[in-house]
Design a protein around this nucleic acid. Sequence first.
DNA 1: TATTGTTATACTCTATAACTATA
DNA 2: TATAGTTATAGAGTATAACAATA
Lengths: 139, 139
Amino acid sequence: MTIPDELSDIDALAQLSFVVQQKLQRRVSGHDLSMIQIRLLGVLRDRHPTMKELGALLDLDKSSVSGLVVRAEQRDLVSRETDETDRRVIRVSLSPMGRRLVTEVSTGFDEDMNELLSPLSAADRRRLTGLIGRILPSQ
Amino acid sequence: MTIPDELSDIDALAQLSFVVQQKLQRRVSGHDLSMIQIRLLGVLRDRHPTMKELGALLDLDKSSVSGLVVRAEQRDLVSRETDETDRRVIRVSLSPMGRRLVTEVSTGFDEDMNELLSPLSAADRRRLTGLIGRILPSQ
DNA sequence: TATTGTTATACTCTATAACTATA
DNA sequence: TATAGTTATAGAGTATAACAATA
């Protein structure tokens, strides 16, 4: 939360997470998107979920999903199709424009992360990845 | 942005940052605060900034700072005092309640981070902190 | 005139509750 | 009745532009 001079392990984690989020935020803002919109587009890259599934994926109320998807549709980032087997259900897909945007943001973010990691040798990058892999929720 | 099975170094950083932010978000929500509110309270722990300085610290427009501080003041989290040497200037301080809340969130977050780091030995924690310290912006 | 901060306005994002359509 | 989704409403959070007070 704060940024002390002496770096404790907890502060290191906290600061790192803020730096990473900040880099992503910059990329997202640069494409006139919000964080929740890029999460929506990211989720849709390899899925065609229903509105309800989207709510679970994004941890949002169904009414919030409705608004989010409507605004994204108005910007031609996603499209909605009624499921023919159950006409209550609506499935959401990425539009070509949405796919282009999420790809651009993702590419830019990868550049940012590579730049962030540039002080480390390949071996140290592997060590860092290994250590992080051990503390991430194992699936 | 997504969560692949094979952990690249970039994905490791991205996932880690999301996990850390998620833990913080949980703590913050548990105290009925927002992320920007806890950032405000965190900034005020060791500062009595002016509204303008707050805007720079939080990267917000002055009008956004006004609203944020007004709402925090209404919840008795902060107080505002006119600077007597320049009566255009307003300085913002943490209230006792605000200090209590930010301390509780901070303590809880520290617990979360210690739990997250628990798979690592003390030596590995030091290695991780060292590696992160080398990639964080040097000030 | 310049600076500091507030206010008016507009939009996104979010949730709760009430609603519609379909099953 | 139950489920999927939308709509009405309310509030936080954000920025831009216009404004007031002070320097």
